[in-house]
């Protein structure tokens, strides 16, 4: 596992985060730093605000106070174009939330294709233009060798087809989770475990810097939990920064580099998995762990 360098800028920095639903204060003043490569596991009783915390991190719930600094920008500020930042934050939901009207393959390639199509086309056109210009200059300068080089490059350049590129990448991701044969089917025919694995690679297709997991195994049949956790672990081992809300304590201990225990909207205790699970200090943490372990 890659070393975590805490001297670097944290990738995600939460400062005094607050969230209120009506008169119900769900998050009170949460602050924490998440560094590159960290796997932060958030545990706690239901109603402790852990899911809300996760959803605030990519502003699916608009925070009512505090800052969330991602890529050196405070994304809690409503003037910020949140879409740009969400492109760098993958999210996996408890209920999978695959797009029901798209095939598995389209589910994966939809977002990259829509979001980067224009940019890619522009870049491609700029490249073509630059070559044309260089060719002209080479001809004017009488540099035959260079001109023929550029001509060759122009001739060899494939036609612009970003869709095919996206499809290729989506197929690679599907191959990785062994669901290549399901590319053309609709999500309604997949099992829960398959759906969740597709949802994970759908988030990966955007090449995010951080992945957020909101109870990824809670809606699964017991025998499907393993395959999903294995995939998450695989992604974790590749060095992805992760924030995981989960009830799987064994998994939390195995994968997590840091555990945050939340209680009544605050971080009651945090530390390494060993610290939290083997030697909890906070009485609420002890009580919770006694109940679930």
């Amino acid at each position: 596992m890659a070393e975590i360098n805490k001297n670097e800028q944290p990738i995600l920095s939460v400062r005094g985060l607050k969230k209120v639903f009506g008169s119900n204060v769900v998050l009170k003043d949460i602050s924490t730093d998440i560094y590159k490569g960290e796997k932060v596991v958030v545990v706690g009783a239901s109603g402790s605000g852990k899911s809300t915390f996760l959803r605030c991190l990519n502003c699916l719930e608009d925070p009512d106070g505090g800052q969330i600094i991602f890529d050196e920008v405070d994304i809690a500020d409503r003037k910020v174009n949140i879409n740009v930042h969400r492109q760098n934050m993958g999210m996996v939901f408890q209920q999978f939330n695959l797009f029901n009207n798209k095939t598995v393959l389209k589910n994966i390639m939809l977002a990259p294709y829509i979001i980067y199509k224009k940019r890619k086309k522009k870049a491609y056109k700029a490249e073509v233009k630059a070559d044309e210009k260089a060719l002209k200059e080479a001809i004017l300068a009488g540099d035959r060798e260079k001109a023929s080089q550029i001509t060759e490059r122009i001739e060899k350049r494939p036609k612009f087809n970003y869709k095919a590129e996206c499809r290729q990448r989506a197929l690679e991701l599907l191959r990785r989770i062994g669901l290549e044969d399901k590319a053309k089917v609709y999500p309604s025919t997949l099992s829960g475990g398959q759906k969740q694995r597709v949802a994970i690679v759908r988030a990966l297709a955007m090449n995010p810097k951080v992945m957020l997991f909101d109870e990824p195994t809670s809606a699964l049949d017991p025998e499907m939990v393993g395959e999903v956790l294995n995939l998450i672990k695989e992604v974790a081992d590749e060095g992805m920064t992760m924030v995981i809300v989960t009830h799987e304590m064994g998994f939390a201990r195995e994968v997590g580099t840091r555990v945050i225990f939340m209680d009544e909207g605050v971080i009651a205790e945090e530390g390494t998995p060993a610290e939290i699970f083997d030697n909890p200090q906070n009485p609420r943490t002890k009580q919770f762990l006694n109940a679930v372990l």
Partner: peptide
């Protein structure tokens, strides 16, 4: 249409209109 569909679209970085057009309206 389940709200999760919209959330999934937005969480991938699609804007409101893209989410509506590609995901919500067809369903």
């Amino acid at each position: 249409v389940d709200d999760g569909q919209r959330e999934a679209g937005r969480s991938l970085g699609l804007n409101t209109w893209q989410t509506m057009f590609h995901i919500i309206i067809p369903q």
